[in-house]
Structure formats: structure tokens, C-alpha cells
């Protein structure tokens, strides 16, 4: 049990997928302009990443490895994630409109989110077992959502600040992300 806890803390704080592993930066800068959008995106990523992490792990372990097709991993994973995201989107739109209203519009964005694909690949590269893969996928996504929401809070505040004209937009976003990353480095000593 404590192993999983350690893994969770590590994935959320120390090796934060956005700030330490540089995965999923495009939406991080794109979707963090408003708090509610960031929250929606964070939730959608938690949902899809957990699902995708588990399903790609099953496919890898029970299909690709036994059939000796490991070299197809990249292409199979991306296809599975794309199909999965599309399916979830269609499914939610009809069956759970309330949830779709909150997450729906963020789903297509996730197909090309390298965080999802990256975590799926890390799961199998590190040779996690099923539980580890589940916990790692979920907590990585939580780390992503946490960083995204924090960033949105900062950027909402920054909207009223006087920023030098040459730094406006993405530049100040990157510098802010840098300072957030620095803060997260402080968790390094925890484990």
C-alpha cells in the first residue's frame, strides 16, 4: 500500500507530468487562460488518461507482447487512444449530457495531448503491473490537473497586472510555468 502512496506523491508533486516531465505543454499554455476552462480540461484529462492508461496496458501485455509485435506499440497506442476518446465523446454526449457539458468540448483536445500518450508509453516501458499502471495513470493525471488549475489561477491574476509588451502572451506564460516548476522542485526532498 505504501508503495502506491509513494508512487502517487511522486507522480503528483515530484515528477509532475507537466512541470518536471514536460508532457502536455501545449494545452497547458493554451487552455490555462480561464479558471473554469482549466478545471474542465483537468477533469477531462483525469478521466481519459486513467481509462487510456489501463486499456493500452491491457493491449500491450495481453496482445502485443505475446504476439511479438512490440514494434507496433506507437501506432497501436495512438489509434486506440484516438478511437477511445472519440467513443467516449459520442457516448457522453448522448448518455450523460450533464457530464458532457462539463468535459465534452475538452475531449477532442486530448487525442493529441502528449501527456496521455506519454503516460501510456511510460506504463509499459517501466514494466508496471496492472495496479501500478492504474495508480500511475490516475495520479499523473491529477498532477496535470493540479498544475493546470494553479496556472489558470495565476494567469487570471496576471490579466490585471502590467506586463511588458514584449512579454505578453505565451512568453510570460512560460516564465510563470518556470517559477511554478521551481516551486515544485522543492518537493524533491519529500520521498
Amino acid at each position: 500500500m505504501s508503495d502506491y502512496l509513494l508512487m502517487a506523491i511522486s507522480a503528483i508533486f515530484i515528477n509532475n507530468i507537466l512541470l518536471a516531465q514536460y508532457l502536455g505543454n501545449c494545452p497547458f499554455l493554451g487552455v490555462s487562460k480561464k479558471m473554469d476552462t482549466a478545471t474542465g480540461m483537468g477533469m477531462a484529462v483525469i478521466f481519459v488518461l486513467t481509462l487510456a492508461g489501463v486499456i493500452t496496458w491491457i493491449i500491450d501485455v495481453y496482445l502485443l507482447c505475446p504476439m511479438d509485435l512490440v514494434y507496433l506499440r506507437t501506432i497501436v497506442f495512438i489509434l486506440v487512444i484516438a478511437a477511445l476518446v472519440q467513443f467516449v465523446e459520442i457516448f457522453l454526449k448522448k448518455m450523460v449530457p450533464a457530464l458532457y457539458a462539463g468535459l465534452g468540448i475538452f475531449l477532442p483536445l486530448i487525442t493529441t495531448n502528449c501527456a496521455v500518450f506519454g503516460v501510456a508509453v511510460i506504463n509499459v516501458r517501466e514494466g508496471f503491473n496492472f495496479m501500478e499502471a492504474l495508480v500511475f495513470s490516475f495520479t499523473s493525471a491529477v498532477g496535470f490537473a493540479l498544475a493546470l488549475v494553479l496556472m489558470a489561477g495565476l494567469r487570471e491574476r496576471m490579466a490585471t497586472a502590467r506586463i511588458p509588451q514584449v512579454l505578453e502572451g505565451t512568453a510570460i506564460g512560460l516564465v510563470t510555468a518556470g517559477f511554478m516548476s521551481l516551486a515544485f522542485l522543492g518537493f524533491m526532498g519529500m520521498v
Binding site: A20, Y22, L167, T170, A171, V175, A177, G178, S181, L185
Partner: peptide, 22 residues
């Protein structure tokens, strides 16, 4: 070479690009 450096360095380069553009 650490993660924060990457973000800040890229941000500063972007800023430089804007200055040159101006």
C-alpha cells in the same frame, strides 16, 4: 538544465523574438 530553466529560457527567447520583431 533543470525543468524550470527550460521554461524560463524558452520564455526569454520568445521575448527576444518579440523585441526583434518590434
Amino acid at each position: 538544465v533543470s525543468a524550470p530553466g527550460a521554461f524560463i529560457c524558452l520564455g526569454m527567447l520568445l521575448c527576444l523574438m518579440n523585441i526583434i520583431g518590434n
